[in-house]
């Protein structure tokens, strides 16, 4: 049987979930590979959810929120940008193509854009193949590393560092400063997580 990508989406209730509803009402067609978990805000998506989704068979993970500035909870989607940035970095570090994780903004009226985005993402994942394939990693290796990441993310030190980093970014209003965020993530999070993941290896 041909490969059908499995995609898990976390959509915020107020905008992206509503965009998906609008796509429905307007009958904009897209491939059925996406399954949706409704959350109140894209800022509710914890990094563990993303890695857990991959462990549970997702070949791609989609996170959809309101356009920046439109979040019902003011900062939620900004927080999501940080979580996704950090998760992509970690994926990269453990050898998984970060293109398998996509963050996207859609307002309630943008049904056709939503349908298009999902179609594109599905095709992208289809071209990458099952998780691990385009990366040249066996599935059990991938899962093992992802589990190590989740274990690592449970560590209080790392979690403190994560929380504090987000506080700094908020405090200094650095959400649009890519370099700053990257530097923070690399310095405070990537190194300790890498240690955890690869310690035995």
């Amino acid at each position: 049987m041909a490969f059908e990508p499995k995609i898990l989406g976390f959509l915020c209730n107020w905008c992206c979930y509503a965009a998906a509803d609008t796509a429905g009402v307007s009958r904009f067609q897209y491939p059925p590979n996406l399954k949706v978990i409704r959350v109140m805000c894209s800022g509710r998506v914890a990094p563990e959810f993303i890695f857990d989704a991959f462990i549970n068979g997702a070949d791609g993970v989609f996170i959809g929120g309101c356009h920046l500035g439109d979040c019902q909870y003011l900062y939620g989607n900004y927080e999501a940008t940080v979580v996704v940035k950090m998760s992509s970095e970690i994926l990269k570090q453990i050898g998984i193509n970060p293109d398998r994780l996509l963050l996207s903004w859609h307002s309630a009226t943008e049904g056709s854009q939503f349908a298009q985005k999902i179609s594109e993402f599905t095709e992208k994942i289809r071209s990458l193949g099952p998780l691990g394939e385009s990366e040249g990693l066996a599935r059990d290796v991938v899962v093992e590393r992802l589990k190590a990441v989740i274990e690592g993310l449970k560590g209080r030190k790392i979690r403190m560092a994560f929380g504090k980093m987000c506080k700094r970014i908020r405090g200094q209003n650095k959400y649009s400063d890519k370099a700053f965020i990257e530097e923070e993530i690399n310095r405070r999070l990537i190194v300790p997580i890498k240690e955890k993941v690869f310690k035995g290896a």
Binding site: V39, G43, R44
Partner: peptide, 13 residues
């Protein structure tokens, strides 16, 4: 509280 869950994502414990 409005239930966004940002706190839950960032709690270290």
């Amino acid at each position: 509280c409005k239930g966004c869950g940002i706190c839950a994502v960032h709690c270290p414990t």
